[in-house]
Design a protein around this nucleic acid. Structure first.
Length: 667
DNA sequence: AACCCGGAAGTAAA
DNA sequence: GTTTACTTCCGGGT
């Protein structure tokens, strides 16, 4: 394709060279004897049509060219400034050759690329690496949850469950019951000592206590494993130390850890997710989380965001993670040390764990847990919560953690709720979380301009993009790429551009809606189909009119109506209200009609979702929206919980919202 | 120069 | 193997 377009693109760019290199490497590694077409002469790059015999030969020729007849290589470049310098080309080619040679030597599919002899200059702190599975790290630090468990066991209980007496077992079960909001456990069925308890498998436990067996089993496994691990929980090895001693490790309190833990599974580290059992296993917290963002802030009232920074203690572990990111993208606006922009990043899921997490801080914990129950459960999970140490969560992911103490328990229903919980894995969710950070730590990256209407501004495009890149582990992310992703949201009406204002976008759907849309692409397909139909209709209409034109002046057609539905422009709230029209500057009648149509559909869809989800309750946003009131109600309050918790954020509201979500999911 | 737009192709996960 | 939700590139417009 590139070659085909050669006539159009005359500039030899670094990216092209890269592509070619990639292509060559790919073909070589696949060793398919694939021969590049000898017939088609690539117009550029390698000027004299070299006979592409095999990738290796081609490369060899390329090298020869660059070395001997460099002029030809650059030949087609019309704008020197955009083209590679001879030196660069040569370097690139040489590098490619090295890779290639390496690939040939070893049958490796992925040739080791070592272009530079020295250490690679990473654009980010090496500490970041520790967020991702690193084969070089001897062993991941123990999961926070485990540590918590270990340290939080009711007094008298030794860490090895196998050594517990019958009373100890009772004590432990009671503890679990309380701590994880498990269903009532019938102690009569557990008249045994620790050893016996440990011998029970999941099924056995489930038989004895339906709702909690899973959780108990996981906890036990965790404890057992913990016992096997000599290392002191309190001083988990800071990952960074392993990697980059130079980086200043921020002191972190072990407490920080917990918050994330389980979350690990979630997003930020999808890579690790496999370590965690999926759905079923997942959450410690009472309910499976439904949606990420929801507020849960209240849950963690006690822990001020700052905590990470503040508390120090030994465990640098968590800090390690945090710090790194933090260092990279310190929340400027915010004051506190809390590092963590990443919080969002990772956290999410963590929510589930929250309860546990908090364990450390008993204070908090109690609050949280209790409260969790009261609410529909969701709260906990809410990712939003403690932004604290996102990374930590990652860390947590240690396999062990995976144990997942599942907690489905609470609600049996949820069981394995498929993760609706995107936890920041999806861009819109990520943005929402940053925007709704209870402590407003990311306002220097992104902030609401008008929360009610969903309009926000990206204050620091580059910084935000970097955060997003970290979140997705695409370290080369930049605003250009991220904004492309945002643009994809236009067509599904999740976002739209606020015209005329740089870096300003508007959410067209509130979070709960988004959450309830299980599959965006489905939505897109619908919209596309409808759009196509409309377009067709519009075209027909236009044709009709044109035919009529002779008789009567065109005119009125500005807003062509569709056949099936009389579009009533007024339907579109958003449109009316603002001046910010959907991005398009130039819209002809057709397009206008089309847009209106689309909007209308959007509304219908919303309605649909709403009705789908709310059984009855007055539900917040959606119902509001419906009102004639023009503005769509973007109610993100539930996401904010913490902040306002004091004042306005009506808990009830929040809870209802959760409820609502919950129901939605069930079906 | 920095955005913004959207097509096209690629990709890691699910 | 397919789908999803981007990611990466890019030419073109504002």
């Amino acid at each position: 394709k590139m070659f085909e377009n050669g006539h159009k693109r005359r500039k030899i760019r670094a990216s092209k060279i890269k592509k070619i290199t990639k292509m060559l490497l790919y073909s070589s590694s696949h060793d398919k004897q694939s021969l590049l077409p000898t017939t088609t002469t690539p117009p550029s790059i390698i000027s004299p049509p070299l006979d592409w015999v095999s990738p290796s030969q081609a490369l060899a020729q390329l090298l020869n060219k660059t070395a001997s007849n460099e002029d030809e290589v650059v030949q087609s470049s019309s704008s020197p400034e955009n083209s590679l310098t001879l030196q660069e080309q040569h370097t690139a080619a040489t590098a490619a050759a090295q890779c290639f040679a390496a690939a040939l030597r070893s049958t490796m599919k992925v040739p080791p690329i070592s272009l530079t002899s020295g250490p690679l200059a990473l654009p980010f702190s090496p500490e970041l690496l520790w967020r991702y599975p690193n084969p070089f790290l001897p062993q991941p630090p123990p999961s926070p949850l485990e540590m918590q468990l270990r340290t939080q066991l009711p007094g008298g209980l030794t860490c090895d469950p196998r050594s517990w007496s019958r009373e100890d077992v009772n004590l432990f079960l009671r503890y679990c019951e309380r701590e994880f909001d498990l269903e009532k456990i019938d102690m009569d069925k557990f008249q045994m000592n620790g050893k016996a308890l440990c011998l029970l498998n999941k099924i056995d436990l489930a038989e004895r206590c339906a709702g909690a067996g899973d959780v108990i089993h996981n906890i036990l496994q965790m404890l057992i494993r913990e016992c096997a691990v000599p290392s002191s929980p309190l001083t988990p090895r800071p990952p960074n130390s392993l990697i980059n001693p130079s980086s200043p490790a921020l002191p972190l309190s072990p407490h920080a850890w917990p918050l994330f833990a389980p979350g690990a599974g979630s997003d930020g580290f999808h890579n690790l997710s496999h370590l965690i059992s999926q759905a079923n296993s997942v959450t410690l917290s009472p309910s499976p989380s439904i949606d990420s963002q929801n507020s849960s802030p209240k849950l963690f009232p006690p822990m001020p965001p700052s905590l990470s920074g503040g508390n120090e203690s030994s465990s640098s572990v968590s800090s390690g993670g945090i710090t790194s990111i933090h260092q990279l993208y310190p929340p400027r606006s915010t004051q506190n040390s809390n590092s963590i922009p990443s919080a969002i990043i990772t956290n999410s899921v963590g929510g589930c764990f929250n309860n546990n997490n908090n364990i450390n801080n008993s204070n908090n914990r109690s609050a949280s847990s209790s409260h969790s129950d009261s609410e529909d459960s969701d709260p906990l999970r809410s990712p939003s919560r403690p932004p604290r140490s996102p990374k930590e969560s990652s860390t947590s992911n240690t396999p062990s953690s995976s144990t997942n103490v599942t907690s489905n328990n609470n609600n049996s229903k949820n069981e394995e709720t498929p993760e609706l919980n995107t936890n920041g894995r999806l861009l819109w969710d990520f943005l929402q979380q940053l925007l709704n950070d209870p402590s407003q730590r990311y306002t220097s990256y992104i902030a609401w301009k008008n929360k009610e209407t969903g309009i926000f501004k990206i204050v620091d495009p580059a910084g935000l993009a970097k955060l997003w890149g970290i979140q997705k582990n695409h370290l080369s992310m930049n605003y250009d790429k991220m904004s492309r992703a945002l643009r994809y949201y236009y067509r599904v009406n999740i976002l739209r551009k606020v015209q005329g204002e740089r870096h300003c976008y508007q959410f067209l759907r509130n979070p709960s809606e988004l959450k309830s849309i299980k599959n965006i692409s489905l939505l897109r397909q619908q919209m596309d189909a409808q759009a196509a139909a409309h377009k067709l209709a519009a075209a027909q209409q236009a044709a009709r009119q044109s035919s009529l034109a002779s008789d009567s002046p065109p005119s009125g057609s500005d807003t062509p109506m569709m056949d099936d539905t009389n579009s009533s422009p007024p339907l579109l709230p958003i449109k009316d209200e603002d001046n910010n029209q959907p991005t398009d500057l130039s819209m002809d009648a057709d397009e206008k009609a089309f847009r209106q149509r689309k909007e209308k559909e959007r509304l219908l869809l919303e309605k649909h979702f709403n009705s789908f989800s709310n059984n009855s309750h007055e539900s917040s946003s959606s119902s509001d929206n419906r009102g004639e009131d023009v503005k769509p109600a973007f109610d993100f309050r539930h996401l904010l919980a913490t902040n306002n918790s004091l004042s306005s954020s009506s808990p009830s509201n929040t809870s209802s919202n959760h409820h609502h979500l919950h129901q939605t999911q069930l079906p």
